[in-house]
Write a protein that binds this DNA or RNA. Structure first.
Lengths: 108, 108
DNA sequence: TTAAAATATTCCTTTACAAGAATATTCGTT
DNA sequence: AACGAATATTCTTGTAAAGGAATATTTTAA
């Protein structure tokens, strides 16, 4: 069982965290490197990483007194799967209101 | 130009709004119908729809004194495109830290 | 033009959460 | 053991936003 969509979306909805995730696309990084590249203070970087970690978007690998963070793929796959549930809609005449209006008339 | 990912994610990060969006997958609905199906009060339903509308996720069609809301597809396509930028990563040996560790050593 | 239904808006209160600053922890090195 | 570097945690404060209640707006019908 994977984290639900809401957890993933909430974690990603914060600008700095979104930046962190986008940065980590390029490869694993330590806290210090992330903080430096995004011009963040270390404590908030750790805190954001903590949120991302709790949401299952990121995991850490200890290396000496450093911690190397990298993305987890499952939540992104889940999100992709969720979006796929919309995909088949667009091809249909979803945006044509004819059918709905007829249904609406029927109720009156 | 489409709304950026952050706007979309922020709008979807709220549980009720996520519910609304998922409900609208099945087809356009009026405010009253949404409120009824999700057991929400009308004012908060309108407010959530307002946020979704401002974020470009939803649009309304006036029909008498009702308003029929439906999904907009562009933001979802954009989000899908954003996720695609992760896709090629998973196939690579992204999760193998070897390379990174070597890089890290080189810096010391 | 008044009334009623559907929806939108405003105001208020409360809560969640991010930033900032300070401190604690952990690990390797000497 | 002690120190310094890297990271985590705690505490406080400020702010954005969600919920509730009341009211305003819009539209149709009588």
């Amino acid at each position: 069982m994977s984290a639900n969509i809401h957890v993933t979306l909430s974690a990603l909805a914060e600008p700095k965290r979104l930046q962190i995730v986008e940065l980590l696309r390029e490869g694993p990084l330590t806290v210090g490197e992330i903080a430096e590249k995004l011009e963040l203070l270390q404590p908030q970087t750790s805190k954001h990483l903590g949120v991302l970690n709790k949401a299952g978007l990121v995991e850490a690998e200890a290396q000496a007194n450093k911690r190397i963070y990298k993305l987890c793929q499952q939540p992104f796959k889940d999100l992709d799967g969720w979006l796929a549930s919309f995909g088949h809609i667009w091809e249909q005449r979803y945006d044509r209101l004819d059918e709905y209006l007829r249904k609406l008339q029927g109720k009156d």
